[in-house]
Design a protein around this nucleic acid. Structure first.
Length: 295
DNA sequence: AGTTGTCAAGCTAGT
DNA sequence: ACTAGCTTGACAACT
């Protein structure tokens, strides 16, 4: 089991997600930001390696506006060497990478323009991982999307559009259960038809489920991953005690986490801790995982 | 230097 | 018909 936190490190003092306003878009601005972001990403990866945190989610802001029509600059070519170096470091360290485009990226919208933009967005995520030389175990995760007043039809549209995706995207795309619309069961049903691996989100499952226990659900999700996809990826977070339902906790709840790790001891997967204090919780979690799983 | 409103993008649910 | 919230940081314009 590899374990880590998404996108940001709060200790190092740099950000790999530095962006700018679209009105200020220029080739120079983009190069400046990406240079800075890649440099910070390297710092984070070094920190993670030192701390044995071997799973990391790279932010979609690493290359601002990369999938947008405004971006006519070939950043892949420009940063080719740097990307290969970073990818080399990731591989040599035995690390794994994921990416997670945000809620605007969905392939089941009835709006053609939304789907087109989403595909363009997914494409650059995959191209980035490709440029780093990472194998297909590096994944890009999205949710099923909207319901649009007709869940069956919306699932159907997901399936149709998924099947039309270029191979470059299909080889990396995984679908994650969300906390309001598409449960794990919904994702599994889609997976049974198109073969997309299902990324299990423990916390979302607590918010929306079909009565299965966490262990049962996790096992079901794991079956959708094949050897070529690598170990199943799992997202974990806990509920902020006084927060609205679905709000992520500030720091990991140690007791809940121990419980989760103990219950799932027999299953192997990679774990992303979606907790606000990032590497702090990840380090605590790693200690627990090591003790309970004896790794 | 510190504070605050705003940001490329979609969707749902609540008013 | 309209907007807050997702999740949330960071930019940019303002004190």
């Amino acid at each position: 089991m590899k374990i880590c936190y998404p996108c940001i490190n709060t200790e190092i003092g740099c950000t790999p997600n530095s962006t700018f306003r679209i009105v200020n878009f220029s080739r120079e601005k983009l190069v400046e930001k990406v240079e800075n972001n890649l440099c910070c990403l390297e710092n984070i990866l070094r920190y993670n390696r030192k701390n044995k945190l071997l799973f990391f989610r790279i932010s979609s802001d690493l290359v601002p506006f990369a999938g947008h029509t405004i971006c006519n600059f070939n950043w892949k070519r420009h940063f080719r060497k740097k990307l290969a170096i970073i990818g080399g470091y990731i591989k040599e360290s035995g690390m794994r990478i994921s990416m997670h485009p945000d809620q605007f990226t969905l392939i089941n919208s009835p709006r053609k323009d939304v789907v087109t933009r989403s595909i363009s967005d997914l494409k650059w995520h995959c191209e980035l991982l490709e440029a780093m030389g990472l194998d297909k175990k590096a994944k890009v995760q999205i949710h099923v999307g909207g319901v649009y007043g007709n869940k069956e039809g919306s699932v159907e549209r997901f399936i149709e559009n998924y099947q039309k995706l270029p191979l470059l995207i299909r080889e990396r795309l995984v679908v994650e259960n969300d906390e309001r619309l598409y449960s794990l069961q919904d994702c599994i049903k889609i997976s049974a038809i198109v073969g997309v691996p299902v990324l299990f989100d423990v916390f979302h499952h607590l918010c929306l489920n079909n009565g299965e226990s966490t262990e049962k659900a996790l096992k079901m999700a794991c079956k959708t991953w094949e050897a070529k996809d690598g170990l199943p990826m799992v997202d974990y977070s806990s509920q902020e005690f006084f927060g609205r339902k679905g709000k992520h906790a500030t720091t990991v709840n140690i007791e809940d986490f121990k419980n989760f790790i103990a219950k799932t001891k027999m299953i192997d997967f990679d774990l992303m801790l979606e907790i606000k204090d990032k590497e702090k919780s990840a380090k605590k979690a790693l200690k627990i995982v090591r003790r309970i799983r004896e790794i």
